[in-house]
């Protein structure tokens, strides 16, 4: 208890910022191995753009995990919301109407998951395991297992969303991701509701007795999560101008959870940061990119990714134990 602090406590710094450490280590490895190619402006922009969708979804996933929950349905939600948006776009030829329909669907979807989980105390793993199948299935039924492509003037306008660049150099998906990250960061760190999310995850009973509306907070994180998934959906489907009810968003939940966990979010709830999750997403992105640059057999990429996820988390638990 009477810990003395002499100069810099390196171990503490490392354990408090394990996400940054994982990121820097991989970044330096990438620079060392493929320095010039890796550091090229185009390559960096590529990494950021390719990971913006997972990056946006992972922000919501982080809040959900902090409350002690999980959302396995994010990939299915993306496909389902994509089907809604593109269908409305095609039939009304109005981008605004399409987005509005998407917002409505996202709020409904998020509220449903959140309310079932929070109010009836169904474990989030089970609720979202169920909704994962439901959304995917409804989307496929609607599209008869296939996809839909945007068309007409509205389609062109829609496609422009993801395919414009700020100052002609920074693609819109990256901008959207960063704006979302900043907003969610401010929300989590500097609003009462944000701090209540941490309180619910760390000590639900204590938070409840202190007057925090636990059901509202728990429902809220799923709604925010779905709102972010809608944004990711628009970024993804407007990049290609189409959505596939069967293949869009498959296994996104794994990447989003991995990004949050590498970023230092505790699966037990109560701990995690938005900055960490952004770094966690980038760490995953660098792994992908490096495998690609090195020409590693694509069938092996996931094995390497999986290993690095486990190593990163091992490092965190090890450091945490030491600093206690």
């Amino acid at each position: 208890m009477n810990r003395e602090k002499k100069g810099l406590d390196l171990k503490k710094i490392v354990s408090d910022h394990s996400a940054l450490v994982s990121f820097l280590v991989l970044f330096l490895v990438a620079v060392a191995v493929k320095g010039t190619t890796f550091l090229q402006f185009n390559n960096i922009v590529n990494i950021l753009r390719n990971n913006s969708i997972i990056g946006i979804i992972a922000l919501g996933m982080t809040l959900i995990i902090i409350t002690g929950g999980i959302d396995l349905s994010v990939g299915s939600q993306l496909a389902f919301l994509g089907v809604v948006v593109i269908n409305v776009l095609v039939s009304t030829q109005n981008v605004f109407a399409a987005l509005l329909a998407g917002i409505g669907a996202a709020l409904a979807v998020g509220f449903l998951t959140g309310f079932i989980t929070a109010k009836f105390r169904v474990p989030a793993f089970i609720t979202t395991l169920g909704t994962m199948s439901i959304y995917r299935s409804i989307g496929q039924f609607w599209m008869n297992g296939g996809g839909i492509t945007s068309n007409g003037d509205a389609g062109t306008a829609y496609i422009a969303i993801s395919n414009t660049s700020l100052f002609g150099v920074i693609p819109m998906p990256i901008i959207v991701w960063m704006v979302c990250a900043i907003v969610i960061f401010l929300f989590a760190e500097h609003t009462a509701a944000g701090r209540h999310i941490y309180a619910v995850g760390s000590g639900e009973k204590a938070a409840k007795l202190a007057g925090v509306n636990v059901i509202r907070i728990k429902t809220m994180v799923y709604v925010i999560g779905s709102a972010l998934i809608l944004i990711a959906t628009v970024v993804e489907t407007s990049r290609l101008g189409s959505v596939n009810s069967a293949s869009s968003g498959v296994s996104y939940e794994m990447d989003a959870i991995a990004a949050a966990v590498i970023g230092g979010t505790s699966m037990a709830g109560g701990k995690g940061t938005i900055v960490g999750t952004v770094l966690g997403t980038l760490t995953l992105g660098i792994i992908d990119n490096l495998m690609n640059l090195l020409g590693v057999n694509p069938f092996l990429v996931n094995a390497v990714k999986g290993t690095i996820i486990i190593v990163a988390v091992l490092l965190q638990t090890f450091l945490n134990r030491k600093s206690d």
Partner: peptide, 16 residues
């Protein structure tokens, strides 16, 4: 179990 929020600091616990 019912009082402290263990992952939060003194300020946040007090003002919850």
């Amino acid at each position: 179990e019912n009082g402290i929020v263990k992952d939060m600091n003194i300020e946040e616990n007090l003002t919850l």
